[in-house]
Design a protein around this nucleic acid. Structure first.
Lengths: 159, 159
DNA sequence: CGTGAAACTTGAGGCTC
DNA sequence: GAGCCTCAAGTTTCACG
């Protein structure tokens, strides 16, 4: 599952434009379309590329409020238990167990502040969760689609 | 720029498979391929869909370490100044100004712990930044490609 | 990995409700 | 306004060299 330079460039192309044609990618990386397809198929089979997705502006769909919530649990709550506590909250966009004071950090998106408050109350009612600490997102400074293997920082998409 | 039910279903389809053909989406939502294309074109023009991207596993590209860093700045540091301080650090995947104690929250990805430490040191050398507080990601519990307008929680991709 | 041919998809015209 | 049909141009996908 080693990636060479061309593989990385193909991935970079597909990060930038997930609907680029194989011929288009091919001219960018100096390969024919079938050769690109074979590599993309291999990258998918190897789990390097896990899928393709539209990049959507949450605000345009009415999700204008965003927060990071530190979650504190009782003594030795396992990751599985934390997962069970948050999995059914649809507002949770991402969640991580982390080092430090908090047991987990969850990224939440809501339609508005009222919705956020409601989601937070619902989270706090979970048995394992003893406390929360919320940081509401005021502005997004940087947000990359995902990590390019070799792309430097791009300008922020503010909202 | 109002979205109807079909628009939302098209967006949901494209979040799930960004390379789906218009005909494919059409059968899923009950429209012909050209009708789907026109709606997708409109959704792009309206900024609801901002692009398409491959979904890549950072670990497969050698980015195995991840952290959230709270950044503390002197008194009244503006979002623009914070942005200027972090924009050139390629390890920064996302950054937000937030309510609460910290001035900003930045999401960082590094190749390994050594690289993370090095990135952190580099960040702390920025003039505006007076202190940082790092939470290293131990495991990812939930991570959705992005927010579907109506999709419930999906299982976590752990690593 | 490249070439070429078959099957499919895209994208733009005009037509209908 | 929004959808459907049709057709040329482009794209994907295969077997073969």
């Amino acid at each position: 599952m080693r990636l060479d330079e061309i593989d990385r460039r193909i991935v970079a192309q597909l990060l930038e434009n997930g609907r680029a044609s194989y011929a288009q990618i091919g001219t960018a990386v100096g390969l024919s379309a079938p050769a690109v397809k074979r590599r993309v198929d291999r990258l998918r089979a190897d789990g390097v590329i896990t899928g393709f997705s539209a990049v959507v502006d949450p605000a345009a769909l009415g999700w204008t409020t965003e927060a990071f919530i530190e979650i504190f649990c009782t003594g030795a709550t396992s990751p599985e238990e934390i997962y069970a506590s948050i999995r059914n909250h649809p507002e949770v966009v991402a969640a991580y167990t982390v080092s430090g004071d908090a047991s987990a950090l969850v990224h939440v998106r809501a339609r508005d502040i009222q919705h956020l408050e409601q989601a937070l109350e619902r989270l706090r009612r979970e048995d394992n969760i003893t406390a929360t600490k919320t940081a509401i997102v005021l502005s997004r400074l940087i947000g990359r689609p995902t990590d390019s293997p070799e792309r430097p920082g791009r300008p922020a998409s503010r909202y």
